[in-house]
Amino acid sequence: MDVFMKGLSKAKEGVVAAAEKTKQGVAEAAGKTKEGVLYVGSKTKEGVVHGVATVAEKTKEQVTNVGGAVVTGVTAVAQKTVEGAGSIAAATGFVKKDQLGKNEEGAPQEGILEDMPVDPDNEAYEMPSEEGYQDYEPEA
């Protein structure tokens, strides 16, 4: 019985440690998101679009440190934060509304985080759909 109880105690310690790591990862992701939003706020009209992409990228980098179902929630929060940063930029006159959601080359930025393969159960990952990809044929 002692062996059984000791095993359960060790398992509990492992769960607590994993929860603490997840909590730490979420806190880091939130900190990076805040950094990115402050970065966007300090940019001029020309830099705002690039700044919004930076927020998304920093958040995406930190999301990889967070495991399990938390990833889905962090990704949703990050996307809403990026959308909010863009709205703030438009409201303050840093950028025109028609410039939001495009990178410096004018290509749409939507789907940055949505296409990231995420499995809350950590069982399997699927690649994003290939609808947006084109076949590449090298020139002879």
Rank of each mutant, 00 (worst) to 15 (best):
F4W: 04
E83Q: 11
T75Q: 10
V74N: 01
M5E: 01
A29K: 04
E35P: 02
F4R: 00
K21G: 00
Q79R: 10
V70E: 00
E104P: 13
Q24E: 05
Q109E: 11
E104F: 14
A19E: 00
G36D: 04
G67R: 10
V16K: 09
G31D: 04
E110Y: 13
A76M: 09
A85V: 10
A27R: 12
G47M: 10
K80W: 13
L100V: 07
A11G: 04
Q109M: 03
E104C: 02
G7N: 14
D119G: 09
E61S: 08
T44D: 00
A107L: 08
E83R: 09
P128Q: 07
L38M: 14
T81E: 01
M127R: 05
T54E: 02
E114R: 11
M5R: 08
P138D: 07
Q79D: 03
G132Y: 09
D121C: 06
G41F: 11
P117N: 06
V40T: 02
G25V: 15
D98F: 01
G84P: 03
K58W: 07
T72D: 09
T92W: 13
V52A: 07
A91I: 09
E46I: 06
G67F: 04
G111V: 15
K32A: 10
A29D: 00
K96F: 13
A30D: 00
T92M: 03
A30L: 15
V66L: 10
N65A: 04
A91L: 14
S9R: 12
T81M: 14
V66Y: 14
V52I: 05
A56R: 15
M127G: 07
V3N: 08
Q79K: 14
V77H: 01
G25I: 06
K32D: 00
Q99F: 05
A17T: 09
M5W: 14
A85F: 06
Y133L: 13
T81K: 02
F94L: 11
V82I: 04
G86S: 06
Q109G: 02
A29V: 07
G31H: 08
D98T: 10
P128L: 08
Y136Q: 06
D121R: 07
S87E: 11
V52W: 10
K34I: 15
G93K: 05
A91G: 06
T92H: 03
Q99P: 02
V74W: 09
E28R: 12
H50Q: 11
Y133G: 08
V3P: 00
G86A: 08
D2H: 13
G68L: 06
A53N: 12
V74M: 08
V95C: 13
H50R: 11
Q62F: 10
G86N: 08
T72A: 13
V3F: 02
V63G: 02
A27Q: 11
G31K: 08
V52G: 02
A89R: 12
E105Y: 15
A91H: 10
G106W: 07
V70D: 01
A19G: 05
H50V: 03
M1C: 00
V52K: 01
A69K: 09
K58G: 01
E35G: 05
T81C: 07
K10T: 04
L8F: 04
Y133A: 08
K43S: 03
N103R: 10
P138M: 04
K96H: 10
V63S: 02
K32W: 14
K80A: 10
S87Y: 04
G25P: 01
T22H: 02
K60I: 07
Y125D: 09
A69F: 14
L113S: 07
G14R: 12
M127E: 14
E110D: 10
I88M: 08
V48Q: 00
A56E: 01
G84W: 08
T64Q: 09
K97R: 11
T64G: 04
M1N: 00
E123F: 07
E20N: 07
L38V: 10
A124W: 08
E137H: 06
Q134V: 02
G51W: 13
V40Q: 01
E57K: 09
E123D: 13
V74A: 10
A90F: 15
K34W: 15
V48C: 08
A140M: 08
L38A: 03
V71M: 11
V55R: 01
A19Y: 13
K32Q: 07
A107K: 08
E137Q: 04
K45R: 12
V118K: 12
Q99N: 15
T22C: 15
E46K: 10
G7H: 04
V63F: 15
F4L: 12
P120L: 07
G132Q: 11
I112N: 08
V74G: 01
T59A: 14
M1R: 00
G132M: 08
S87H: 13
T92G: 09
G101F: 12
P117Y: 11
A29W: 11
G7A: 03
N103G: 08
N122Y: 11
E28I: 06
K23W: 09
A78R: 06
A90I: 03
V70H: 01
A11P: 00
V95Q: 12
A53G: 08
G51F: 10
G67S: 08
E61Q: 09
E61N: 12
E104R: 15
A29S: 06
A124S: 12
G93M: 02
S87G: 13
D98V: 06
V66W: 11
N65D: 04
I88A: 02
Y136F: 06
P108K: 06
E35D: 14
G31C: 01
E13T: 05
E57V: 04
E130N: 09
A76N: 11
N103T: 08
L100S: 15
S42Y: 09
G51C: 10
G41N: 03
K45I: 11
A107M: 14
A78H: 11
E126C: 07
N122M: 13
A56D: 00
L38K: 11
K80L: 11
K60Y: 13
E20R: 03
A91Q: 04
G51I: 15
G68V: 13
H50C: 13
G41R: 05
T44I: 11
K6E: 01
E105K: 01
E57F: 09
N122G: 03
D2M: 02
E46R: 09
N103F: 05
T44C: 14
K6A: 05
A91W: 09
P120H: 05
A69W: 11
A107G: 14
K43F: 11
K6T: 04
K23V: 05
K32P: 00
Q79A: 05
V66D: 01
E46A: 11
E105R: 12
G14N: 08
K60F: 06
K80T: 04
E139N: 11
A85K: 02
A76F: 10
E13F: 03
D98R: 08
E137L: 06
T75G: 11
G41Q: 07
E137T: 06
V71H: 14
E104N: 05
D135L: 08
M127A: 03
Y125I: 13
S9N: 11
P120Y: 08
V70W: 09
E139L: 03
V66H: 04
Y39A: 02
S9H: 09
T75A: 15
G68P: 04
G106P: 07
V118C: 09
Y136K: 07
L8P: 00
V95L: 09
G47P: 06
K32N: 03
G31Y: 14
G111K: 10
V3D: 02
E114Y: 12
Y39L: 12
K102S: 01
A30T: 07
K6D: 05
D2W: 02
K102N: 15
